[in-house]
Amino acid sequence: MLDALGEPQSVLVLGGTSEIALATIKEMPRHRLRRVLLAGRPSESLDAAVAQLKALNIAGVEPIEFDAKNTDTHGAIIDAAFDASDIDVVILAFGVLGDQMTAEEDPSHAVEIATVNYTGSVSAGLHVARRLKNQGHGTLVVLSSVAGDRARRSNFVYGSTKAGLDAFAQGLDASLEKTGAHVLIVRPGFVRTRMTSHLPEAPMTTNPEDVAKIIVTALKKGKSTVYAPGPLRFVMAGLKTLPKPLFRKLPS
């Protein structure tokens, strides 16, 4: 249960090795956390993520096996997590950036990106929403992206999956009205994580810790959408209305 200051006791991360999600856990008051479930594909990095949080004296850190692509398994995995005790915050953090050029040449790569980022999120998101509604409280944090605000030549396959995810999350939030459950949509710009380490940095680049602070504050305030960094909201509002010829001339 959240306490009166909005500090969570239990968190489930879908995409348990995500650097943004792990930074978010670290930003939460540690002594309050009783249970942190890191769901992901079994790997050394998942074990390392568990070890990293345990080393910070965070209680109840556990890995659970979860693959975004195996949508058949989502219901049982999410039910087991919620059956053990209420979950205050679920962070839907899995996602792949993929490679745009490869995707254009080999559509099966595009399908892979869409399956993880969109199909997997729809499946997991609906199962989580069902359980949040049942417990009458809790927030699903969805890691969308500014890439979904307007499709760009350089990464429109990824961008389109985030656009779909973002629209899904908005609708899901509406469906949860008056149930006590909420959705927080987070739209980061370029964040320095392993997902982007091979790319040149864009303007307004941030670190996972910056995004984490924004997420934790937004959770306390009960917001439903945030950009990271905040001012990106205005930049994206501008970009969305920019005439096509101008938009396409922007450096990618």
Binding site: M1, D3, A4, G6, Q135, G136, H137, K178, T179, G180
Partner: peptide
């Protein structure tokens, strides 16, 4: 205190 409402 009106903190942390839930739905029942």
């Amino acid at each position: 205190g009106r903190t942390t409402p839930t739905v029942a």
